[in-house]
Every structure is written in structure tokens, then in C-alpha cells.
Amino acid sequence: MPVGTITVEMTKQGLKNGFVHGWAVGLGGLTIDLMLILALYFGFASALALHYIQIPLWIVGAGFLTYLGYDSIKNADRDITPANEKTQKSFFITYRNGLLVTASPGNLVFWISVFGAVLSQSYSSSSTGSFVVAAIGVMTGMLIHDLGLLSIVSVSRKVMSRRMIQWVSMMAGIVLFGFSLYFLYEFIVSFIRLV
């Protein structure tokens, strides 16, 4: 699995607030991914590929990732819950962040180009049964990735100092800024192509 915005946000939340909050981000991501599988199944992938639908998504995604990056850097020293304490952060806020990060155009393009090709090939090859098997395989792979990543983060969190977690949060913010710049670039390129 390539490192993307959801992996960065899962790692950051897992280090700062523990396994459950990293998992909440992952569940938000899996929710959107499941919705995209259903959209592919019902033939909506072609609508997601339209430029006039992607262009607003690119700019909204850039704005949201800029906000997350800024928040990661600004609040790097806040909301860190030691491994032996219970976190006060809302599960649903981290779940919402997972939903919003995964609903970004980068993820949509990834789904349409990579998984969309695999799933649409399995859909057209014989019956809907092969599509369902391929979709379950994709979701299972993503679930294994999330659980594996968060297990490593959870163990690492126990041996990391507060200062180390702050640095990781700041680096995550910088990476999220990088993704937002990429989204902004894609917005500009898509807008120029449309005009």
C-alpha cells in the first residue's frame, strides 16, 4: 500500500491518542472505500472521472489537507495522551477526519485508476460473484494494512517520549502540507485543461 494521507493521519492519531483513535481514522477511510466500491459496482466510476466533478474536489481536498497539516504542526505538543492514560479526544472526531481525508480526490483517482480497473475487470469477466470476491479481497487487504500499521504504531508509542511524538506530529503536518500542494497543483492542471 502506498503511503497516503490516510496513513499519515492514522499514524499521527495512533501515536498521540492510541490504537483506538488511529483505528477510528482507518474506519472512516474504510467507510469511504466501501462506498467507492459500491459506486464502482453501480457504474458511478465514470462520473467521478469527469473533470468538472474532480476540479472542486481537488481544491476542497487541498484546503482540508492544509488545515490538517497546519493543525498537526500547531498542536504538535497538545492532545498527546501517555500510553498508560485514557484519552479525552472524541472517537467520532477522529472517525470524521478519516472520512474527510479519504474522500479526497487523490483517493478517488487512486480508486478509479487502480482498484477500479481491477474491480471492473472482475465485474465484466463473468458474474457479480467475482466482483464481490475481488472487493472483499481489496477490503481485507486494507484492513490488514490498517491493523498492521496501528499495531506497530501502538507498540512504538509505548517507547516514544512526548518530544518524539511531537516531532512525528510536526513531520506528519509537513507531509500533509505536501499532499495539499500536490492537490493544488492537480486543481490548477485540471482547471487549465478544462478551460
Rank of each mutant, 00 (worst) to 15 (best):
M1V: 10
P2Y: 10
V3Y: 04
G4E: 02
G4R: 02
T5H: 00
T5A: 12
T7K: 06
E9R: 02
M10L: 02
M10Q: 04
Q13S: 10
L15N: 01
L15P: 01
K16S: 02
N17Y: 01
N17G: 00
N17P: 01
G18F: 00
G18Q: 01
F19T: 01
G22W: 00
W23R: 08
V25A: 00
V25H: 03
G26M: 02
T31Y: 06
T31S: 13
D33H: 13
D33S: 09
L34H: 01
L34S: 12
L36C: 11
I37D: 00
L38K: 03
L38W: 14
Y41L: 14
S46Q: 12
L50G: 02
Q54L: 14
Q54F: 13
I55N: 05
P56Y: 07
W58P: 02
I59V: 15
I59D: 03
V60H: 04
G61P: 02
F64H: 01
L65W: 02
Y67S: 03
L68V: 03
G69L: 00
Y70E: 06
D71Y: 10
K74C: 11
N75C: 07
A76W: 01
A76F: 03
D77A: 14
D77S: 14
D77H: 13
D79Q: 10
P82K: 00
E85R: 13
E85C: 11
E85A: 09
K86Q: 09
K86T: 12
K86A: 12
T87L: 06
Q88C: 03
K89Q: 12
T94L: 07
L99C: 08
L100I: 09
V101H: 00
T102L: 08
G106I: 01
N107P: 05
F110D: 04
W111F: 13
W111C: 02
I112P: 01
S113P: 09
S113V: 15
S113Y: 13
V114E: 10
G116S: 07
G116H: 07
V118Q: 09
S122Y: 09
S122L: 10
Y123Q: 14
Y123K: 15
Y123F: 15
S124N: 10
S124C: 08
S126R: 11
S127E: 13
T128S: 14
G129S: 11
V132L: 12
V132N: 06
A134T: 06
A135S: 15
A135P: 07
G137C: 10
M139T: 05
M139Y: 06
T140G: 12
T140R: 04
G141W: 08
L143N: 05
I144S: 09
I144Y: 08
H145G: 06
G148P: 05
G148M: 11
L149I: 11
I152L: 09
S154Y: 12
S156T: 14
R157T: 10
V159I: 12
M160A: 13
M160C: 09
M160Y: 13
S161H: 02
S161Y: 10
R163V: 14
M164P: 04
Q166N: 12
W167L: 13
V168G: 00
S169C: 05
S169I: 15
M171H: 02
A172V: 11
A172H: 04
V175A: 13
V175E: 02
L176Q: 04
F177G: 05
F177D: 03
F177P: 01
F177Q: 03
S180I: 08
S180T: 12
F183H: 11
F183P: 03
L184D: 03
L184M: 13
E186F: 07
E186C: 07
I188D: 07
I188G: 01
F191C: 09
I192A: 14
R193V: 07
